[in-house]
Design a binder for these strands. Structure first.
Ligand SMILES: [Mg+2]
Length: 408
DNA sequence: TCTGGGGTCCTAGGACCC
DNA sequence: TCTGGGGTCCTAGGACCC
C-alpha cells in the first residue's frame, strides 16, 4: 500500500467542555456530565474533575465521594450531536475521506490534501484552529501512517495536543509502549499478555507468531501486526461503511422489578424505538435478541429469528413477548433490552417482507408526527405505563445513518 | 446509594449434513 | 473391534470501542 497520512481528531472532554462553553460559571469548577435518574453514570468529566479521579462510567455517588465540589450537569444530547455535525463539516473542507469514529472522534485521510493545504502538521493546526473558532472547543490531533498510529498519537498528548508519528518513528514509539495503549487491546487481552510476560508492544512484536496463534487464534495474528504498527484498514466514509448489522435499545429500570406486566410495557416501548429507527433507515429485522440483566448484574440474552423480515412494532413486540415468556426469571430485573439483526429493506425478498399496506401507512403517519413533535407523541396504550430512563448518550452515535441516541 | 447505552466482531459447542 | 472428518448454521457469551 502506498504511504498514507491519517489524522485522528479527538475532542477534549467533549460534553463537559460544551457545557462549560454554554455556562461560564462552570468554567472554573469540576464538571461531570450525567444522564437521567439515580442510576446514571458519568459520561464525561472535565479535566478538573479528572484530577480527583472522576471517570467515565463511574456512578454519581462515587464521583461525589471523590470530588465533593463536582458539578453534575444533565446531558443535552441534541447540542452534542449538532456540535459533532459542525465539526465534521469543518473536516470536510480538508478531505472527503472522513470516518466518524464516535460522537467526538474522527479519522481523516489527508494523503491527497497536502498540495492544497500544506504539510500534515499544518493541516492539523488548521483543523484545530477552525474547530476552536467555530465551536470554542479544544481538540487533540494525532498524525500517523495509518489509523492505529494516528489514534495512538492523539492519545499521547491531551488536552490541546498535536502529535506526529512518522513512518520511521513507529518502531521506536512502540518499543516500550504498554500493549494496552493500543486501540483494540483492552483489560482482558492485556492481562493475558502480561501473564505471558508480554508488557510492551516491542515484546509483543517479538513474540513468535505460533505462540500468539495458539493462545489467541485469529486475534493473535492481528495482535502481532498491531504491535508492529501495521494497520491497512482504510478510512471509510459513512457511505463506504459496511451496512448496519443491528439496531437495539435497552434500559436500566428506575428500580428492579420482577413484575412481568411492567417488563412487557417496557418491551413495547423498546420495540417502538427499535422499529421506528429501522423504518426510518429502511432496515428490516431478521432476528430479535432479548437482553436481561438481573439485580446482581448477571446478564444474559435469548434470541429467536423473526419468521420474516419486519420492522413493524407490533410484530416485533409480540415476538419479544414470546421470547420473554420462554424465560423463567430467577431474580429481580435491573435492565431489559432488545436488539434486532437487520438487513437493508430492499434486500429482503418482497414476498418475505411482511407488509400490510394500511398498516405501513399508519406506521409512516405516526413516524412523521413523532419526528415533528417528539418521540412517543403518538404511541400505543401500554407504552404509557413505562416511564423513566437514564437518558445517557451513546458515543457510538453517528451523524448520519442508523446509529442513534436519544436527542431529547 | 454502587455500577448507562449503543454498537462490532470473534469464539465455541452442538446440531445437522455429506 | 473400533468407531471419519469436514463443513455450515445456530445460539450464547464475551471482548472491545466510544
Ligand atoms: Mg474525546
Amino acid at each position: 500500500m502506498a504511504a498514507r497520512t491519517i489524522l485522528h481528531i479527538d475532542m477534549d472532554a467533549f460534553f463537559a467542555s460544551i457545557e462549560q462553553r454554554r455556562n461560564p460559571a462552570l468554567r472554573s469548577r469540576p464538571v461531570a456530565v450525567i444522564g437521567r435518574g439515580h442510576r446514571t453514570v458519568i459520561t464525561t468529566a472535565s479535566y478538573h474533575a479528572r484530577r480527583y479521579g472522576v471517570r467515565t462510567g463511574m456512578n454519581i455517588y462515587e464521583a461525589r465521594r471523590l470530588c465533593p465540589q463536582v458539578v453534575f450537569v444533565k446531558a443535552n444530547n441534541r447540542i452534542y450531536t449538532d456540535t459533532s455535525r459542525r465539526i465534521l463539516a469543518i473536516l470536510e473542507g480538508f478531505s472527503p475521506k472522513i470516518e466518524p469514529f464516535s460522537i467526538d472522534e474522527a479519522f481523516i485521510d489527508v494523503t491527497g490534501s497536502t498540495s492544497l493545504f500544506g504539510t500534515p502538521r499544518t493541516i492539523a493546526l488548521s483543523i484545530k484552529k477552525r474547530i476552536r473558532e467555530e465551536t470554542g472547543l479544544g481538540s487533540s490531533v494525532g498524525i500517523g501512517p495509518n489509523k492505529l498510529m494516528a489514534k495512538l498519537a492523539s492519545s499521547m498528548q491531551k488536552p490541546d495536543g498535536l502529535v506526529l508519528i512518522e513512518e520511521g518513528e513507529v518502531r521506536s514509539v512502540l518499543e516500550r509502549l504498554p500493549v494496552e495503549r493500543l486501540c483494540g487491546i483492552g483489560r482482558k487481552l492485556a492481562g493475558r499478555l502480561n501473564a505471558m510476560g508480554i508488557r510492551t508492544c516491542g515484546q509483543l512484536a517479538d513474540c513468535p507468531a505460533g505462540i500468539l496463534k495458539s493462545s489467541f487464534g485469529m486475534t493473535g495474528e492481528r495482535l502481532k501486526l498491531m504491535a508492529q504498527g501495521i494497520d491497512t484498514s482504510p478510512v471509510a466514509s459513512v457511505e463506504e461503511q459496511e451496512r448496519t448489522r443491528s439496531v437495539g435499545h435497552s434500559i436500566t429500570l428506575p428500580r428492579n422489578t420482577s413484575d412481568t406486566k411492567t417488563l412487557k410495557a417496557y418491551l413495547l416501548r423498546l420495540s417502538e424505538k427499535v422499529c421506528s429507527r429501522a423504518r426510518k433507515h429502511g432496515l428490516a429485522g431478521t432476528r430479535l435478541i432479548l437482553t436481561v440483566r438481573y439485580s446482581d448484574f448477571h446478564t444474559f440474552t435469548r434470541s429467536r429469528p423473526l419468521p420474516c423480515p419486519t420492522n413493524d412494532t407490533r410484530a416485533v413486540y409480540l415476538h419479544a413477548l414470546r421470547i420473554m415468556d420462554s424465560i423463567e426469571l430467577k431474580k429481580a430485573v435491573r435492565l431489559i433490552g432488545i436488539a434486532m439483526d437487520v438487513l437493508a429493506r430492499h434486500l429482503c425478498q418482497e414476498s418475505l417482507f411482511e407488509e400490510d399496506r394500511r398498516r405501513t401507512d399508519l406506521l409512516r403517519a405516526m413516524d412523521t408526527v413523532n419526528e415533528s413533535f417528539g418521540e412517543f407523541t403518538l404511541t400505543w396504550g401500554t407504552i404509557l405505563e413505562s416511564r423513566g430512563e437514564t437518558g445517557v448518550i451513546s458515543p457510538s452515535w453517528r451523524p448520519t445513518g442508523a446509529r442513534n441516541i436519544d436527542e431529547t
